[in-house]
Computed example of a mutant assay.
Amino acid sequence: MLKMKTNRAAAKRFKRTAKGGFKSAQAFTSHRFHGKTKKQRRQLRGLSMMDKSNVKRYKKMLPAK
């Protein structure tokens, strides 16, 4: 039987947590910061947890992790 292949694009963007959730970088952080408040910019730093509705899809993409 064939091995499950990891989706390489997903592996570069998402990390699995110890409890089985996923964390990823925030969206809206690449450019046009002049239109965002300081509070928005500060809160967009770092990683955020993936929404539960998407977890099932990403578990299929990252089977070995």
Rank of each mutant, 00 (worst) to 15 (best):
M1H: 11
M1K: 08
M1L: 12
L2Y: 11
L2R: 08
K3T: 12
K3R: 03
M4F: 13
M4R: 10
K5M: 12
T6M: 09
N7H: 10
N7D: 14
R8M: 11
R8S: 09
A9Y: 05
A9N: 11
A9L: 14
A10V: 10
A10E: 06
A11T: 02
A11P: 01
A11M: 09
A11V: 04
F14P: 02
F14W: 09
F14N: 06
F14D: 05
K15F: 00
K15D: 14
R16P: 02
T17V: 06
T17M: 01
T17G: 02
T17W: 00
A18E: 15
A18M: 05
K19R: 11
K19C: 11
K19Q: 11
K19S: 15
G20A: 06
G20V: 09
G21C: 04
G21E: 12
F22M: 05
K23P: 03
S24F: 01
A25K: 09
A25G: 12
Q26D: 06
Q26T: 06
A27K: 06
A27D: 10
A27L: 10
F28D: 10
F28C: 07
F28G: 05
T29M: 04
T29H: 01
S30L: 14
S30E: 15
H31N: 08
H31Y: 08
R32Y: 04
R32K: 13
R32N: 07
R32T: 03
R32D: 14
R32L: 10
F33M: 14
F33G: 15
F33E: 15
H34K: 08
G35H: 02
K36V: 00
T37N: 02
T37R: 02
K39E: 13
K39C: 04
Q40E: 14
R41W: 00
R41K: 12
R42F: 05
R42S: 08
Q43H: 04
L44I: 01
L44T: 09
R45F: 00
R45A: 09
R45Y: 01
G46Y: 01
G46A: 13
L47Q: 07
S48P: 00
S48E: 09
S48C: 12
M49A: 14
M49V: 15
M49W: 06
M49N: 11
M50Q: 08
M50I: 07
N54M: 08
V55K: 01
V55R: 02
K56G: 03
R57P: 00
R57F: 07
Y58F: 13
Y58L: 15
Y58S: 07
K59V: 09
K59W: 03
K59H: 10
K59C: 11
K60G: 00
K60V: 09
K60S: 05
M61K: 15
L62I: 07
P63N: 03
P63F: 07
P63R: 06
A64V: 09
A64W: 02
A64D: 09
